[in-house]
Design a binder for these strands. Structure first.
Length: 296
DNA sequence: ATCCAGGTATGCA
DNA sequence: TGCATACCTGGA
């Protein structure tokens, strides 16, 4: 077992309510966080493991295995994209003429878009097709447990694409991946022998980056946008899934619009931070659904 | 039991 | 282009 550092506040200070922390870590952006039910979250990305909580003043505090303590603050600042002001970005969204968006922003003040490692974001969203968050977490947990490198006792990183290329499709399927195993195997075959792909992709403008990703098997418009939004900080990416489709149709009275029309409308209506608006709408709708049907 | 779950690729009009 | 259908699997 690892020894954890004392809790320390993350600098610089940034606003985040308790709701937003849960929604950020366990709301469909990331899939490797585990809440203890009492406000403490343990999570991993790349070769980082950390625990997070909010103190009485609403400030984010972290504790890490002592071996990682030195690099964790900088890793956290990148992960939470603290170079961005999400309150300001949200304020620039068209909430003044959009009551529904206004309600969502009010409910999750300071909700950020994470900047996760690109390779594992791609892996996560390849797993996401027609799966719920708990299932995706299960898949990634199995992949890390079976094929990931041990970072510290009890903590394994997700396997990189080179490693995944060496895993059989059968063994991938055994991680509850289903038909997604075939896609992951095929993507690993492509990316495993192409170590510079991440830099190449990062350097591309959004439309080209999206097209590049969509050439990969199993990556369509939605997954490509999720990878760019949550794994590359491209806030203009606007993933349209069944939830967003439903929200836009109902709340914006676009009942008979097609998915493609909705996607186009969203990009125009919400603008250069459309992805942030998407996350607000998604978070709000999940909350409404959870309130309507509490867990038993 | 049958249906559905943060989609994508494929096959036909 | 545009719209159905199959694709894995576990839980409700």
């Amino acid at each position: 077992m690892v020894t954890w550092t004392p809790w320390r506040a993350l600098e610089p200070e940034f606003p985040m309510g308790g709701l937003s922390l849960a929604e950020t870590l366990d709301g469909g952006q990331a899939f490797r966080w585990h809440g203890d039910g009492d406000g403490v979250w343990t999570g991993q990305w790349a070769d980082v493991a950390v625990r997070l909580r909010l103190n009485d003043h609403g400030r984010l505090e972290w504790s890490a295995p002592v071996e990682l303590g030195k690099k964790v603050p900088e890793a956290l600042r990148r992960y939470f994209a603290l170079d961005r002001d999400f309150v300001e970005l949200a304020d620039r969204l068209p909430w003044r003429s959009d009551p529904h968006l206004a309600r969502a922003i009010e409910t999750f003040p300071g909700l950020p878009i994470l900047r996760q490692p690109l390779p594992e974001t791609l892996l996560a969203f390849l797993c996401s097709a027609t799966k719920q968050i708990v299932q995706i977490k299960q898949m990634l947990g199995l992949l890390a447990e079976r094929f990931g490198r041990e970072v510290l006792p009890g903590f394994r990183a997700l396997p990189d694409w080179n490693r995944l290329d060496s895993v059989s499709e059968t063994d991938l399927r055994a991680c509850a991946l289903g038909f997604r195993a075939r896609y992951i195997k095929a993507v690993a075959r492509i990316l495993g022998g192409r170590p510079g792909w991440e830099e190449t992709l990062t350097a591309l403008p959004y439309p080209e980056a999206r097209d590049w990703l969509m050439q990969l098997p199993g990556v369509g418009e939605k997954v490509a946008d999720c990878v760019l939004l949550f794994g590359a900080g491209r806030l203009e990416a606007f993933p349209v899934d069944v939830w967003i489709l439903k929200v836009m149709r109902q709340r914006y009275h676009l009942e008979d619009w097609t998915l493609h029309q909705i996607a186009q409308f969203g990009r125009i209506h919400f603008g250069s931070a459309a992805g942030l608006a998407q996350q607000y709408l998604f978070a709000y709708e999940r909350r409404v659904a959870a309130a309507a049907k509490p867990p038993n």
